[in-house]
Design a protein around this nucleic acid. Structure first.
Length: 736
DNA sequence: CCTACGCACTTTTTT
DNA sequence: AGTGCGTAGG
C-alpha cells in the first residue's frame, strides 16, 4: 500500500514519530513543532501500515476545540470520517463510558452532569442544610477541595483523617457532598473521571473488552494530565495496548489545578520500552524569538531537555518597552498596532497577552478610544452565562421535574412571588418526605397548607413547567422550537427587557443564540447512548462550553491571558505587564515549583509570536485601586540580552532608590517618532513627539519627560546638539 | 417579596 | 476600581 501521502511533507523527526513501531512512545513536541500534525499522521499511519481499524484507536485531548480539530484533520488526511474511532476529551470519553455502562458504574440511568456553577450551588445547599459556618469553610474553597481530591483519585473515604478541625470539616463536607450527589444522580466533572476509572477497576470483563478493543491510545497535551486522568489512561492501555503521548514539559502551566508534570517526566518509567522522540524544529517563530525562549527556559531545573531551532532566519530582535504607567504601556501598544495595521497586517494577527484578566481593562479602554475592534478570549463561556443557564434549567425541569437543582435555580426567575420563605418550606417538606421539591410543591398546592398567595404562585409555576414538558413530547417540534417555547413560557424575554443598560439586550441576544444553537444541534452519529435529543443537548451544553462568540469573524485584535494563548500563534505578539509581582505573580512565590511554572508560562507567551514580539512593562501600575511600583520581571533578565532591544531610553533622573536599582542600562537604539507622538506632557503645552525650538540649541524633537509642575523636565533630541534635559519652566521652548 | 446599599475580594481555566 | 454577594430596609 502506498503510504507516502502520510510520510511526505514531514521532517525526519516527525517521520520518526509518525512511523514509530506499534509501541509506547513519547513525543516531546516543542512549541510550533507540528504536534497535532504528528498526532494526526500517526493515526493515519497506524491505520495503513498496521491495518488497524479506527475502531481500535482512541485519541484523547483536553478541550473540545482540540478534539474537533483533530477529528477534522483526520478526516482531511484519510479522506473520510474515522468510523468507530473514539476521539474526544477526557471528560467526554469518560461520560460516554458512563452513559453506556451506567448500571455497572452504579449510576442512575438519568444521571446529570453538573458544571462548576451547579456544583457550588450544591455545596451551598448542603452547608445550609447542615448549618455549617460558611465563613470558616467558604463554599468556593470547599468545592476547590473536593475537586482537588477527585483529581487525585480520592473519594471522601480516602481522604486521610486529620485532627485539625478545618481539614476534618472539609472531609465531612466531602462525605455529605458525595451522598447528595449519589441521591440526586449528579456528577461533577471530576466525578466523570473518577467514576470511569472505578468502572474499569471494578468490572474486569468490561475492562478486558476495552483493553482488547483499544490497541493504541493517543494523548495530546500530555503534560497537563492529572493523577486520575493518568491512572485512567494506564488502566485503559493495560498490558496489551500501547500509547503515544504527545506533550511538552516546558509548556506545563496547569499545575495549580492538579496537572502533574511528573506524568510526562516519568512516562518512560511507567510504560515499557518507550521510544522518545524530540521535535525541536520550529516552524512558527523567528530565530531571535526562539533564542529568547530557549534562554529563558534554561533557568528551569528538571527539564526533559529540548532546544528549539529554525532554519528560516533570525528576524527582528524582541522589543522591550518600559511604560511609565499602565496607561502609557497601553498607548504604546496601540501605536505599534496602528503602525502594523497601516503596513498591512490584519488585526486578527495581533495578540495582546497578559497574566491576569484584570489587566485587560486599560488596554480595552485604549482600543475603544482608538476605535479598533478587539476580541477577548476566555471570559464567560456561552453556556455559562446566567440567562443561558436559566433557560437550560427550565429545559432540565421540563425533562425531569424532580431535578431539584434546576428547580431551585429558576423557581423565582423571573420573580413570580416565590421567595426564600416559600422555597424554604418546599425544601423542608422535600427533606421530611424524602421527595423532590417538585413533589413537595404539588403536595402544597393540593392540600393548601400554605397561604393562598404563595400557594397560587407555586401552582402557577407548576403549570408553566407542565406546559414545557408537553412541548417535549410533540414530535413535530424541533429542539429550537422547544427552546423558543421554553423561553416564551418562562417569560425570560420581558424579564431581561426590564434590566437597565445594555446588559438585558445582550442577554436576549444570547437567548436567541441558544435557540439557534438548539435548532442546529444534531445528535445523529454514534450517540446511541442518549435517550433523547434534549438530553444529549443538555449534556453537551455542560461539557462543551460553546466557545464561539458572535463577532468571531470580524477582523479584530486578540486579547487573552497567557493561559488561554497556549496552542495559538500570531505574527505580532505583545507580552504585557512583565513585572515582578505580576508576572511572575506574587502568589507564586510561596511554593517553589510555582515559579518554574510561571517561567513556563512566559515561555508559552514568547513562543506564540511568529514574526515580532514586544515585551512591555510599566514602572508604576494602578491595580485594584492602589498604585504599585514593580521592578521589571526577572524573566526579562533571563532572556539573552542580545535578543532584546529597548525602544526608549530609560529616564536618568532622580527616582526613589528602590526603583533605580532595577533600571536597565540599555541605551536608546532607535527613536520611533510614531511611537512617541501624541504623548501629552502634563500641565504644559508640549507633547512628546512635538518639534520644538530652543533659542540656543535650535530645533529638536521631544522624546521624553519627567516630573510635574515647576519641576517638569523634557528631553529633547536636538538636530545639531544631541539630546538634552531641560526644565520646562526655565527653558524657553517654542512648539513648532 | 424586591431593591439598594455596603462589604470583601481580587492568578491562571477546562471539563 | 470593579464586581459579586449578603443583608438590611421598603
Amino acid at each position: 500500500m502506498d503510504v507516502s501521502f502520510i510520510l511526505d511533507a514531514l521532517n525526519d523527526k516527525q517521520r520518526e514519530a509518525v512511523a514509530a513501531p506499534l509501541q509506547n512512545s513519547l513525543v516531546l513536541a516543542g512549541a510550533g513543532s507540528g504536534k497535532t500534525r504528528v498526532l494526526v499522521h500517526r493515526i493515519a499511519w497506524l491505520m495503513h501500515a498496521y491495518e488497524l481499524s479506527p475502531y481500535s484507536l482512541m485519541a484523547v485531548t483536553f478541550t473540545n476545540k482540540a478534539a474537533r480539530e483533530m477529528q477534522g484533520r483526520i478526516e482531511q488526511l484519510v479522506g473520510l470520517p474515522p468510523q468507530g474511532m473514539w476521539v474526544g476529551t477526557f471528560h467526554g470519553l469518560a461520560h460516554r463510558l458512563l452513559r453506556a455502562h451506567w448500571r455497572d458504574a452504579g449510576l442512575k440511568e438519568n444521571f446529570q452532569i453538573m458544571d462548576s456553577d451547579d456544583q457550588l450551588r450544591l455545596v451551598k445547599r448542603i452547608m445550609r442544610e447542615f448549618n455549617i459556618d460558611d465563613t470558616r469553610w467558604p463554599p468556593k474553597q470547599v468545592a476547590w477541595f473536593i475537586n482537588g481530591q477527585k483529581d487525585e483519585g480520592r473519594r471522601a473515604a480516602h481522604v486521610p483523617d486529620s485532627h485539625d478541625p478545618f481539614s476534618k470539616g472539609m472531609r465531612e463536607l466531602y462525605y455529605h457532598y458525595e451522598e447528595a450527589c449519589e441521591r440526586n444522580g449528579l456528577l461533577d466533572f471530576g466525578e466523570l473521571l473518577l467514576r470511569a476509572h472505578e468502572l474499569m477497576l471494578t468490572n474486569p470483563a468490561l475492562l478486558k473488552h476495552y483493553q482488547q478493543r483499544f490497541v493504541h491510545v493517543l494523548v495530546d497535551e500530555f503534560q497537563d494530565t492529572n493523577t486520575i486522568q493518568y491512572a485512567w489512561l494506564r488502566v485503559m492501555v493495560g498490558d496489551t495496548g500501547t500509547i503515544t503521548a504527545v506533550g511538552d514539559d516546558d509548556q506545563s502551566i496547569y499545575g495549580w489545578r492538579g496537572a502533574k508534570i511528573e506524568n510526562i517526566q516519568n512516562f518512560s518509567k511507567h510504560f515499557n520500552d518507550v521510544a522518545t522522540i524530540r521535535l525541536e524544529q520550529n516552524y512558527r517563530s523567528t530565530g531571535q524569538i526562539l533564542k529568547a525562549a530557549n534562554g529563558l527556559i534554561q533557568n528551569n531545573d528538571d527539564r526533559l531537555g529540548k532546544e528549539l531551532w529554525t532554519d528560516s532566519g533570525d528576524g527582528d530582535p524582541i522589543s522591550l518597552y518600559a511604560g511609565f504607567n499602565e496607561q502609557d504601556e497601553a498607548r504604546f501598544i496601540l501605536e505599534i498596532i496602528k503602525k502594523w495595521r497601516d503596513d498591512g497586517t490584519a488585526l486578527k494577527d495581533m495578540a495582546i497577552l497578559y497574566r491576569s484578566n484584570a489587566q485587560s481593562r486599560v488596554i480595552e479602554e485604549c482600543l475603544v478610544r482608538e476605535q479598533l475592534p478587539y476580541r477577548i478570549y476566555g471570559g464567560h463561556r456561552f453556556y455559562d452565562r446566567l440567562e443561558i443557564k436559566n433557560a437550560l434549567a427550565y429545559a432540565r425541569l421540563a425533562v425531569d421535574p424532580n431535578d431539584d437543582g434546576a428547580m431551585e435555580r429558576v423557581i423565582n426567575v423571573p420573580p413570580r412571588g416565590i421567595g426564600e420563605r416559600s422555597i424554604g418550606t418546599l425544601r423542608e417538606i422535600a427533606r421530611d418526605q424524602g421527595c423532590s421539591m417538585w413533589q413537595a410543591a404539588e403536595h402544597i398546592v393540593q392540600h393548601g397548607v400554605m397561604p393562598a398567595r404563595a400557594s397560587n404562585a407555586i401552582k402557577n409555576f407548576l403549570q408553566i413547567i407542565d406546559g414545557m414538558g408537553n412541548t417535549l413530547i410533540q414530535p413535530d417540534l424541533g429542539l429550537g422550537d422547544v427552546f423558543e417555547h421554553i423561553i416564551q413560557e418562562a417569560g425570560l424575554i420581558p424579564h431581561h427587557e426590564k434590566e437597565k443598560g445594555e446588559k438585558g439586550e445582550a442577554r436576549i441576544e444570547n437567548l436567541k443564540e441558544l435557540v439557534s444553537a438548539a435548532s442546529g444541534f444534531s445528535w445523529s452519529e454514534d450517540d446511541e447512548e442518549f435517550s433523547s435529543p434534549m438530553m444529549a443537548f443538555l449534556d453537551q451544553a455542560v461539557l462543551d462550553a460553546g466557545e464561539a462568540q458572535a463577532d468571531e469573524y470580524q477582523d479584530s485584535v486578540q486579547l487573552m491571558t497567557l493561559h488561554s494563548a497556549k496552542g495559538l500563534e500570531f505574527p505580532l505578539v505583545f507580552l504585557t505587564g512583565v513585572e515582578e509581582n505580576l508576572f511572575p505573580s506574587k502568589m507564586s512565590f510561596e511554593e517553589p515549583g510555582r515559579l518554574e511554572e510561571e517561567r513556563r508560562l512566559c515561555y508559552v507567551g514568547i513562543t506564540r509570536a511568529m514574526e515580532k514580539l514586544y515585551i512591555t512593562y510599566a514602572e508604576s501600575r494602578r491595580l485594584h485601586g492602589s498604585e504599585s511600583f514593580n521592578s521589571p520581571s526577572r524573566f526579562i533578565r533571563e532572556i539573552p540580552q542580545e535578543c532584546i532591544e529597548e525602544v526608549r531610553l530609560r529616564s536618568q533622573v532622580a527616582r526613589p532608590v528602590s526603583m533605580q536599582r532595577h533600571n536597565y542600562q540599555g541605551t536608546l537604539q532607535k527613536q520611533n517618532q510614531s511611537i512617541l507622538h501624541g504623548y501629552q506632557v502634563p500641565e504644559t503645552n508640549v507633547s512628546m513627539g512635538d518639534r520644538v525650538k530652543h533659542p540656543v540649541f535650535g530645533e529638536g524633537l521631544v522624546i521624553n519627560y519627567e516630573g510635574q509642575g515647576p519641576q517638569a523636565r523634557v528631553q529633547v533630541n536636538f538636530d545639531t546638539e544631541g539630546t538634552k534635559w531641560l526644565v520646562l519652566s526655565f527653558a524657553k521652548l517654542e512648539v513648532l
